[in-house]
Design a binder for these strands. Structure first.
Length: 599
RNA sequence: GGUCCUAUGGUCAAGCGGUUAAGACACCGCCCUUUCACGGCGGUAACCCGGGUUCGAUUCCCGGUAGGAUCACCA
């Protein structure tokens, strides 16, 4: 078989060679001297979830905390993996960029990153989508067809790949047969022979007949010769961290890959003649990954654990193409405890609203809090670091893949809330006020109206935050609004009953006397002194301990008296310091609310 | 089913041949306190099972078990 002739038959329109593309996309200067190049490769389904954020965060940190010899940081770029045309959703790229930007993650390069001057290609459509930026584009896989095909052509001309005309029915039959015989499914070994052994004439005939076909990799399978591949000509599989070795285990050839998160991972070599180019001329993920990450000069591939099992395919592809392998970082899957089974399971799009990034925006979690929480499950030593450096910027933390857990972490809302309390405490009240209003405008418009007085809102949010032991009761916007809603008349309601120690008559009397003696200009101790007086006059204990010790001698204590006032002014029995609240509320409102209750 | 990954309290996790097996969250109790929150102190609670290796295994090896991942012209 003349493979060159076959390649020409299959790809007559392709005139560029791999060498041409190597020249168009030269190695990156920063990566050459140690900087890390990472990428996010989402498919444009429009759904971006916590797992994406988790991965993106790893990518971003890895790239941006690395530096080349001259101090230039690494590069983090966005590549859209839209080889599956069925899944494209309009506006998805904007959604991805904006969602991540909300969490403080931005790209240096790639799809939709439109920095002026350096764009080498445009985003699809003339609909005003931002243009792409960078010298390694196109950044949409759907636009890279000729590039992939040039490499496939080269593979075919070397006899490393071949066309396959198997129909869907034939494929199904083979699978059924394999399943019945309890064999591994797929096209490999003897199942591949039929297509592998097609003569040039047969192929030509099929093509003339218009039969659809795919291009498959001619896998070396177990027959791969370790002495004669990776180790040879230093620039192939033997990657930057020297991370693939072969090992014969009882006649089965294994690859051992050094994963930056998991350490050494051993798997049998690939023996499947996987599809690399679909009938449409578009590559499969496997092929696109290998070509793109090589040509775009990615140094670290961060992706979910679900890709681990296809690593042997990628290794063989890198080998066949003589590319240097990147360092792989296979992250653990985010898990959740299933309510029904009690088992850990992958967070699911359908069942778990907290998987969606929108959930956090809806509830009004601050992006910093989510980020901080993510880091606590991402790197086991982060919490320790945070305790030692409570005020340091999160980016000062030295993130390492070694400290990442390889087991799936359970998502813990409690922990998020706890982290959030501390994060919000460090954000100035004024900024928090803006955050609240922005959130409300989007999710609770009426509340946004209520909170329109920013000065007032700022004072409210700042209550008790500057003491030696500051309050930490602000967690997320929805919760915060519930927490402070009584400051706004339109949301003020009496939610609780007066304590049972206080009779209705006493309650009225307490409020009456409170109102009579109320002086808005009293300082806190003058104000409380008056409450003590009322307390004693009506037969309640001024010291709660006295009541506790001698419950028979008093009706109740100053705590109960205070609660009555609390309910009158706040509508609830639990709140921060009453005096402070009244100062913010203003005399008019205080008097009005109490009068209202006395009737 | 094949292959791979993982296995320390309810959760996240230190540990990397000898420890009273850290810490954080949650939970419970006490203290502080006019309520709540914060804070302080204390408490309940863990090395999946069975074999080896070793003077000694949570730690190393093998086997089970359990959970997860994956077996497409989807990524």
């Amino acid at each position: 078989m003349d493979y060159n002739k076959l390649a020409e038959l299959l790809f007559p329109q392709i005139d560029k060679t791999p060498e041409d593309y190597e020249a168009i996309y030269p190695p990156r200067a920063n990566a050459e001297s140690g900087a890390v190049i990472t990428r996010l490769g989402p498919s444009p389904t429009g759904f971006i979830h916590l797992g994406n954020l988790y991965g993106a965060f790893v990518d971003e940190r890895l790239a941006h905390q690395s530096k080349a010899a001259d101090g230039t940081p690494g590069t983090f770029y966005l590549r859209i993996e839209d080889t599956d045309d069925k899944r494209y959703v309009e506006g998805a790229v904007d959604t991805i960029i904006n969602s991540l930007k909300f969490f403080g993650i931005s790209f240096d390069e790639g799809a939709g990153c439109g920095a002026p001057g350096c764009a080498t290609d445009g985003a699809p459509g003339e609909d005003g989508t931002p243009t792409d930026a960078g010298d390694y584009g196109p950044y949409y896989q759907s636009q890279r067809g000729p590039i992939y095909q040039a490499f496939v052509k080269s593979l075919v001309s070397q006899g490393k790949a071949y066309p396959c005309f198997l129909t869907e029915e034939e494929l199904n039959d083979i699978r059924a047969q394999q399943e019945a015989a309890k064999e591994t499914t797929g096209i490999y070994g003897k199942y591949a022979e039929k297509s592998r052994n097609l003569s040039y004439e047969e192929i030509e005939e099929n093509i003339k007949a218009g039969k659809p076909y795919v291009i498959r990799l001619k896998s070396k399978g177990n027959a791969i010769d370790p002495a004669n591949c990776c180790m040879e000509n230093g620039a192939t599989c033997k990657g930057s961290s020297g991370n693939v070795t072969y090992q014969n285990r009882d006649g089965v050839m294994y690859i051992i890959v050094n994963d930056a998160i998991r350490g050494e991972v051993a798997m049998p070599c690939n023996d499947q003649d996987v599809v690399i180019l679909k009938a449409t001329g578009i590559p499969t993920y496997h092929f696109a990954h290998v070509i793109d990450d090589h040509l775009m000069r990615t140094t670290h591939v961060v992706r979910g654990e679900e890709w681990l099992m296809s690593l042997p395919i990628h290794v063989e592809l890198f080998e066949a193409l003589r590319f240097k392998m990147p360092t792989y970082c296979h992250t653990a899957v985010l898990m959740k405890l299933d309510d029904e089974s009690g088992n850990k399971r992958k967070l699911s799009k359908r069942k778990d609203p907290e998987l969606s990034l929108d959930y956090y925006r809806n509830e009004g979690y601050h992006p910093q809090a989510v980020k901080e929480y993510l880091l606590t499950i991402l790197n086991s030593n982060f919490e320790e670091w945070r305790m030692a450096n409570p005020d340091a910027d999160i980016d000062e933390f030295r993130f390492t893949t070694e400290k990442m857990s390889s087991a799936g972490a359970l998502f813990d809302l409690n922990k998020l809330n706890d982290v959030s309390k501390d994060v919000l405490l460090k954000i100035p009240a004024e900024e928090l006020a803006d955050f609240m209003v922005d959130w409300a405008k989007e999710f609770k418009p009426k509340a946004a109206e209520a909170m329109s007085d920013k000065e007032y809102l700022t004072k409210i949010l700042d209550i008790g935050r500057h003491d030696a032991k500051p309050r930490k009761d602000l967690i997320y916007a929805k919760q915060i609004f519930d927490f402070i809603s009584y400051f706004y008349d339109e949301y003020f309601v009496i939610e609780e009953r007066i304590p049972e120690q206080v009779s209705d008559e006493d309650a009225k009397e307490i409020l009456k006397r409170y109102l009579e003696t109320y002086d808005h200009s009293d300082d806190q101790s003058q104000w409380f002194e008056k409450i003590r007086t009322i307390t004693a006059d009506l037969g309640y204990a001024v010291k709660p301990k006295d009541y506790k010790k001698h419950p028979d001698e008093y009706k109740g204590s100053v705590a109960h008296v205070s609660t009555v006032i609390r309910i009158a002014v706040m509508g609830r029995s639990q709140s921060p310091d009453v005096w402070t609240i009244q100062q913010i509320l203003g005399e008019e409102k205080v008097r009005a609310r109490i009068s209202e209750l006395i009737g």
